[in-house]
């Protein structure tokens, strides 16, 4: 039931003919070729692509951890030249700081920005509660399950109050059951705390469950192959015929030879 869309609204993320080529001594590796994409405020966009196609590279380009070889990335109207607190990133499980407690991880961002202790604690606590981890504030990540670690990752990104959330296969390492639970949970959190999200996955079910819009990517050098709007009401039902129809479409597009 999302209506994104005054067509003339300025996008919050905009990729303008972005290309990325990695250089090494032995070869040049063109990974992203001429990708243009606009993401509107509070839109949930899923980047769907095969393994090793350059999804993480795209996320890093938006995050400012890497710079495009040509083209331009803009977030909130400003050209991205470096990482910044307006863009939070959620990586796979290994990205939590193992030497910080749950609280330490979640308040890391505000602490780096110099937010006073009382304020950042309150804020961190709010997001810890939101992801359902109250009572685990003092636990270290090695004591948490995979799903719980990803909740911490999400709370950590939120606590820094970013405009844009970048999620790089955050549920990729989880078992199927936990994964379903986390998708449901993420959708709830997002409904409550709307942000612009760019979410990477190579699981079509996850893509259709979460996305307002699915961007289907080709193999390297990756380009945008196709775009699918998902207008189904939320929360979505995996077995809904309309849901399955969209998944079928995605698979059809992907089976098409490049």
């Amino acid at each position: 039931m999302e209506h994104h869309g005054g067509v003339n609204k300025t996008p919050i993320i905009s990729l303008d003919h972005v290309s990325k080529t990695y250089l090494s001594v032995h070869k040049t590796n063109e990974v992203v070729r001429d990708v243009s994409l606009d993401v509107q405020e509070n839109e949930f966009v899923v980047l769907f692509g095969p393994g090793q196609c350059g999804k993480t590279t795209l996320i890093n380009l938006i995050a400012g951890l890497q710079l495009p070889t040509s083209g331009e990335v803009k977030v909130d109207g400003k050209t991205v030249t470096a990482p910044g607190p307006d863009r939070g990133v959620v990586y796979q499980t290994t990205a939590l700081f193992p030497f910080c407690t749950v609280m330490g991880n979640v308040e890391f961002g505000p602490k780096s920005r110099g937010v006073p202790k009382k304020q950042r604690r309150e804020r961190a606590q709010y997001f810890i509660d939101l992801v359902g981890l109250q009572g685990f504030e003092k636990s270290f990540p090695n004591r948490l399950s995979g799903g719980m670690r990803q909740r911490v990752g999400i709370a950590r990104a939120y606590a820094n109050d970013p405009k844009v959330m970048l999620m790089d296969e955050p549920f990729g390492h989880l078992d199927a059951q936990t994964r379903y639970m986390m998708e449901e949970e993420l959708e709830k959190i997002w409904q409550k705390e709307k942000r612009t999200v760019v979410f990477v996955t190579n699981n079509s079910e996850e893509a259709v469950y979460l996305a307002d819009r699915i961007i289907i990517l080709t193999n390297t050098p990756t380009r945008i192959k196709h775009e699918i709007k998902v207008d189904l009401p939320r929360p979505r039902v995996y077995s809904d015929p309309a849901f399955l129809e969209i998944r079928r479409q995605i698979e059809e597009i992907c089976d098409d030879t490049l």
């Binding site: 951890l65 990482p83 607190p85 863009r87 990133v89 990205a95």
Partner: peptide
Amino acid sequence: KPVHLWVAQTFG
């Protein structure tokens, strides 16, 4: 780990 440095960097 580079990813930890990335996270810290995105936190400013």
